[in-house]
Design a protein around this nucleic acid. Sequence first.
RNA 1: GGGGGCGUAGCUCAAUUGGUUAGAGCAUCGGAUUGUCGAUCCGAAGGUUGCGGGUUCGACCCCCGUCGCCCUCGCCA
Length: 595
Amino acid sequence: MYTLKRTQTCGALRASDAGRTVILNGWVEARRDFGGVLFIDLRDRYGKTQVVFRPEVDAALAELAQSLRFEFVVAVRGVVKARPAEAVKKGMETGEIELEATGLEILNESKAPPFEVTDEAAASDEMRLKYRYLDLRRRPMQRNMVTRHRVLAAFRESMDAQGFLDLDTPILIKNTPGGARNFLVPSRLWPHQFFALAESPQIFKQLFQVAGMDRYFQVCKCYRDEDLRADRQPEFTQFDLEMSFVDEGDVQAAVEQAVSHVFQKVLGVTLPTPFPRMTYAEAMDRYGSDKPDIRFALHLVDVTDLARASAFRVFSEAVATGGIVKGLCVPGGGTMSRKEIDELTTWVKGVGAKGLVWLKGEGGTLGGGSAKNFSAEELAALRSRLGANDGDLLLFVADERGRCKVALGGLRTMLGQKLKLVKEGSWEPFWVVEFPMFEAGPEGRPQAKHHVFTSPMPDDVALLETEPLKVRARAYDLVLNGVELGGGSIRIHRKDLQRRVLAVIGLQEGDIRDKFGFMLDAFDYGAPPHGGIALGVDRFVMLLLGLDSIRDVIPFPKTQKGQCLMQSAPGGVIPKQLDELHIALKPAPEDGRAG
RNA sequence: GGGGGCGUAGCUCAAUUGGUUAGAGCAUCGGAUUGUCGAUCCGAAGGUUGCGGGUUCGACCCCCGUCGCCCUCGCCA
């Protein structure tokens, strides 16, 4: 119990409140002591208000206020006063007033915080994660969390308006190898048996369709035990939806409506719909990426034909061994230093490419770098093919097809950011469509690129057994500003086609029965045509806020090694727990990371 | 598993490229200060330079190993 319960929040008071007696509760954000008069900035989720203590108003109170320190939690009663004209703080919502204190209750003291709880993130990621509750107290993080809430609220609003049902699915499910590595949960009641944490609600949402729950959606947690990235966490959140009696266009339209609604509600931005479509083949050829940032026009240009006959062996040999040569013309990139170009080369080699060939537009032809390896005619042809001007930088990668695209596509993205080619504040969502059904696995055997329930395009079904790698899928990814927001597909709803697809990836009848038996059984009982999609909530919020790490929009994220620095999770368990689970531990690996 | 960056006071950083007493700002503590809002001024305290080993007359600096944080490739249907 405490006596001075707040009557207002710290962001509420304005000049029109002058003369009122109110009570504020909050944290001490700043303290300015003039010996006589003492100022305190009081903060809560809603804002910040200056409190002033004066000895002439209450000497004992002013003395008590001297003991206040950063992050003390206090309750202050006082009279709202208009500030003297010269003391008005511009740019502060409550800057026209201050609270002249007549009562103070220290609700809790605080140790000196390990870092300052200020708007500027002056602390390292490590400190922020260890003391996450203090990091979250900072205004920018509070803003991020509020935005996250508003995005979720707007999404649910749109889904409800479109007639979707919010239904949940189990987190503890059966382990099915393939796809992302699962987190495993041992079963106490069934010794030697394990649950897996759901990596997505995929199977269940399809079974909802079999069950007639047309138009399902959910905001759900997903778990994948894979390596982390700036935009990947082992535990993340998806907008998940699935619909019956639909084709690609219906799912995309539903998503466009929901995404547009979120943009309108959260940013006040109107997105033109429908979103443009681009085929996977075009994305890879022109951008070297299946999630290109199309906000800047920097395209990969194929010069394989020119390279084939070149005297420059780096080019001709790459082509002779079945590779390709592609180039990128960076407008104005000629000013980049040798050192900067070397950094690009280092990166390219890091992704497995052999190297980077570079030239600069100068004197009406091309010079610098590898120019001496080409004839004048070749330089002219390259310059013309890439549309280069004097002052431009030309970058080429000659390599195996996939590596070439990945290397140049990566360079394109890096240069777009480095040279600020991107129009800030622009939003260009689009769909990448016609993904390949399969990709070559380790031993050349086709693997599902999306997942095994994805339907092939009708025109390509005949190729399933003969040229599986040429079969295109009825799959689609939603891409926004170079980020893959999510992907989905029209599913296979007929058992005969499903069996053919499973056979292509080499699953034996026994395996099929073991892994997907219940799914196929369900399809025996009238599965409707259906399809859906899942979008990454964390990435979505990150994009809306213009941030570049997913960690800043997840309240309690893990480090890149998958640890929670605040809890020190994961951690060990006591022998009794292991006994109950009938689990014996093998010796820990040498790196000493065992709990 | 591979490539790269970083690790120095509670926090954020510096240390003339190997030279003897490792500095600054903020925070902390003490003092001064009656209109500030990153308050100001004076003073104090604060260090196993992530950890282990090596090279050297001498190591924050060079070498090897290791741990941690970040970026990235693989991986993530």
